[in-house]
């Protein structure tokens, strides 16, 4: 398993360092390619992104073209996944919904990481008063229930896609921050860090070279879980009438709306639920694959 040469961490040998990183990337790619599930995940994620980009070419109908005469048609050759309560093609709406759901999922997680990683790093590394202050801030935000905070923010600033993403992002950064800090707390006592310290490596250097890569795996898992969580949170808000507006096709909203139709028009709920499930599976497998591939701890 250990393919790289056993270098003392932090040793200032630049050429060897580069070499080591190149092999690391190569190893990762090779390991990733050997993992079937990871490839499936990669495939799904790629497919999702392509669908989002080329939705105009894939979807047979516009997402907002109502046709009351053909409302609530069961799946047929023309409408693969049926039509909704005003006669819009469900398949087309799901295809376009990829854009919205990816925007919500990725947007929320991006905001979460942008806020969460720096704060988590500082808290986990600096310790002392800085850690204390950051953790109090995290506590303040965590102590306010997510749904309630999002509701408060949306009530103050108004709904719509961008505000929903922003509100959910502001709620979601806590997990990333706490996870990173906890991981660092645990890691910083480990042998290889102690070793680096003995060698005299600076704090920042240890953080970036050794601690962060080691903490990446759980973060990736958190992100892959966070994406569907964000998609769901958006569904919950839509369920309460505070999410994305119609006719913008969000899967979460489609699932929420389908509740009163489910007993008869099952396809209205099943297909968007499947879309969410596939997205979740894709990101999960992909995330797991990445984690296994970049498993830095095996190199230390």
């Amino acid at each position: 398993m250990t393919t790289s040469t056993s270098l003392a961490p932090g040793q200032p040998v630049n050429t060897q360092q580069e070499l080591r990183q190149r092999t690391l990337l190569g190893d990762a790619a090779r390991r990733f390619a050997r993992n079937k599930l990871a490839l499936v995940g990669l495939f799904i994620v790629t497919a999702l992104i392509l669908t989002a980009i080329f939705a105009d070419f894939i979807a047979p109908f516009p997402y907002d073209a109502a046709d009351p005469v053909n409302a609530l048609q069961f799946p047929s050759r023309e409408h693969w996944m049926g039509t909704d309560e005003v006669g819009r093609d469900v398949y087309s709406r799901i295809v376009y919904g990829t854009r919205i759901s990816l925007a919500v999922g990725l947007g929320v997680m991006a905001i979460a990481l942008i806020i969460g990683i720096p704060l988590g790093l500082i808290a986990g590394l600096a310790g002392g008063p800085l850690d204390y202050i950051i953790m109090r801030v995290v506590e303040v935000f965590t102590a306010i229930p997510a749904l309630m905070l999002a509701l408060l923010l949306i009530s103050v600033f108004g709904g719509g896609l961008y505000n929903v993403i922003l509100a959910l992002g502001i709620v979601a950064w806590l997990d990333a921050c706490r996870l990173l800090r906890a991981q660092l707390l645990s890691l910083r006592e480990r042998d290889f860090v102690l070793a680096a310290q003995t060698v005299g490596a600076s704090k920042v250097r240890i953080a970036i070279r050794h601690l962060l890569p080691n903490a990446v795996a759980p973060l990736i898992v958190a992100v892959t879980i966070g994406i569907p969580v964000a998609i769901f949170a958006e569904a919950g808000l839509s369920f309460l009438g505070l999410g994305v507006n119609d006719p913008i096709p969000s899967w979460g909203k489609m699932v929420g709306n389908s509740l009163s139709y489910m007993r008869v028009y099952w396809y209205l709920g099943v297909f968007p639920t499947l879309a969410i499930a596939f997205t979740m599976l894709g990101f999960t497998f992909f995330g797991d694959g990445l984690r296994d591939a970049f498993d830095v701890s095996t190199n230390s």
Binding site: A65, A66, E85, D246, I248
Partner: peptide
């Protein structure tokens, strides 16, 4: 559903973009 259908008709026939929001 009625609101959605009307919004869609406004888009189709008059070219006017209409979002529908069911508020609290």
């Amino acid at each position: 559903a009625v609101a959605q259908a009307y919004a869609s008709a406004l888009k189709d026939t008059l070219g006017i973009d209409v979002e529908v929001t069911n508020m609290d």
